[in-house]
Design a binder for these strands. Sequence first.
DNA 1: ATGCGGACCTGTTAGC
DNA 2: TGCTAACAGGTCCGCA
Length: 271
Amino acid sequence: MPELPEVETTRRGIAPVLEGARIRELVVRERRLRWPVPRGLEKRLRQQEITALRRRAKYLLLETTVGTALLHLGMSGSIRIVDPKSAPEKHDHFDIVTTQGDAVRFNDPRRFGSLLWGGADPTKHPLLAKLGPEPLDAGLTAEYLHASSRGRRVSIKQHIMNSHCVVGVGNIYASEALFHAGINPTRAAGRLSLARMHRLVNEIQKVLNSAIKQGGTTLRDYRNGNGKPGYFHQQLAVYELEGTACKICTTPIRRRVQGQRATYYCPDCQT
DNA sequence: ATGCGGACCTGTTAGC
DNA sequence: TGCTAACAGGTCCGCA
């Protein structure tokens, strides 16, 4: 999936056809996503005006005059704008069709994505209520990260990937940010100094902003809302680069598993 | 409260 | 060429 830069790129790609438009209909072909698409969502959304398309963490928030629908891309979800009359392809699970004649079509082979109803105040929805700060907002500071990790024995990589701590730092960018910050991903979160947290926050923001600017990372088959691939892949320093020379010291990059996820790092630069 | 493993799925690729 | 196993961008849940 889609890490945060891909979700943000998607949001920017489809916002122009959704914001200010009216929903003609929601067409659901497969309800069995991460959670079942709620029965009756079609009726709820019909004829509603979309006031905004926002993002919170990796959720897209489709705001209408009667409430907000929540859309998550999971690991393999993607969205494209199509002609609503065009034949759906494999794994095209639903369309949001506007009265303007556009369709936002959701495709997700693994079905880890979701489409849910967030109600009138989506910040109160259980999936959103306890999320940590946005990584690119003022809420993520070194002081916050330092304070939130005291006493925690989890590794710093798992800590920054925990959405209750901070949202939007996925598996690729966690490895990348830790590399640029010179921090060993296995280090206990609770033992990192404030100075190192400053560096880490700075690198998280740099790597995410840079990836957004490049249109997201393309691994395998990711495409943004316009069907164009992202270009950040070319700039990855460690992710999926096991055995290649570290760009700083030429030591071979290593791979290990933390919390059942692959981590890539330089054993010499990251301490 | 924290930390860990398992769960949800399909598709691609590496290895035999 | 074909079969099998490992692995993949997320993140919630339940148990110890």
